[in-house]
Design a protein around this nucleic acid. Structure first.
Lengths: 210, 210
DNA sequence: TTGACAGCATACTCGGTAGTATGTTTGCAT
DNA sequence: ATGCAAACATACTACCGAGTATGCTGTCAA
């Protein structure tokens, strides 16, 4: 059973398609995108293959759309928050404070997209799949560039220590995505755990830059 | 006859088995452990399936032994370096300075073991596979505990900021493993790049703790 | 009422892969 | 030299899972 999915203004997505994406994210997360079969996803939906292949032409496209949605989630939340008029450190703290809760809210999607970073499953045969994965790459690049700009500005005005920009960027992104690797919601966790977690990671991330 | 004590000694591995593990790490890294077939590994070796199945009873065991070796590499190098008589910060810097070059030296192995962290491929049917994966879990736990002890001591004596220990630990480990996600050796990189990289990551890691 | 299409279910095909069974060579002790 | 494992190669089988072809059912417009 899947919770309510946030409707994105960008793509008017059918309700059924959204449910399939949620289920795919969940199943791909648990079994791994390669090991999981379309039948596994269908079973988790309480339906059959036919429904999935009615909305998605292939497993690769389904996987790609899960990853694309993961990318959109954070991008749409963090992107608008950046304010060129403010200081780099304030901007960065604000971005992180939005980024972390969002990836925790849409955790399965991000656990899936991370799989595509460690195992380069580019068996992408069809043209559509290649196009989608290219769009994912572009979107990630754009998202990185937002942080890159903040870091660059911060190194210039002395807020952050001057060092290799790419290494700094990758380390920062990994740090604020860290919960994706180890976090899974528990019943006995304190109510303010996520708040505390976000604060701590923000502090550590900013501290790592000085 | 030192044969008897070989039980506790690490593992006198045959040359051929080592070659197979190297090839498996390389191929699993490139294609993903699930997508890659045993024939792919054999082809990369210039041989056939028969050779692999002569040394390994199943693909799962092969994968497990790759992961186990990845774990051993860093454990054997970093483990002996810790000195209880020294300060937490000195210890931590020394450990990181050994950890990072070692994972870069044995990069394919670590790219593979990371896959098993994001995609929980527990199709482990056989008892042997379960035993091996359990040993991997235990070894990782032990390795984590080394850092946990240092962090705990550092928080107590004021070297490090006091905050959630588990979150700090996971973030630190992710930070010093960061190159596994994005680094691949290039011909045109400066000779001192790895040294600089190690220094920067050490600095960032320690800075993140204050 | 009908017919036409979206939204799925059912029942297949078919290629790829893990694993096996068995042959063949190489090293090596006696 | 000769026997005999170890260390492979070759040639299969069995099965799983992606993709397809087709059938079924509701909905809605004309």
């Amino acid at each position: 059973m899947s919770g309510q999915s946030a409707q994105l203004a960008k793509k008017p997505m059918s309700k059924s398609k959204g449910e399939i994406l949620d289920a795919a994210a969940e199943v791909f997360m648990r079994l791994g995108a390669d090991a999981a079969s379309i039948d596994d996803v269908a079973r988790h939906l309480g339906s059959t293959k036919g429904r999935i292949y009615h909305h998605f032409p292939s497993k690769g496209v389904l996987l790609a759309e899960v990853c694309l949605r993961a990318s959109d989630f954070v991008h749409d939340v963090v992107g608008p928050a950046v304010d060129p008029a403010t200081s780099p450190e304030i901007n960065l703290r604000r971005m992180i404070a939005l980024h972390i809760p969002e990836i925790l809210r849409t955790l399965p999607y991000h656990k899936v997209i991370i799989q595509s970073y460690v195992g380069i499953n580019q068996k992408s045969t069809t043209a559509l799949e290649r196009e989608l994965f290219e769009r994912i790459r572009v979107e990630r690049r754009q998202y990185e560039d937002i942080f890159r700009g903040i870091l660059s500005a911060g190194m210039k005005d002395g807020s952050f220590r001057q060092q290799n920009l790419s290494v700094t960027l990758q380390s920062l992104l990994l740090l604020i995505n860290a919960p994706v690797f180890w976090y899974s919601p528990r019943a006995d966790e304190p109510a303010d755990f996520l708040t505390k977690l976000t604060e701590q990671l923000s502090d550590m991330a900013v501290a790592a830059l000085r």
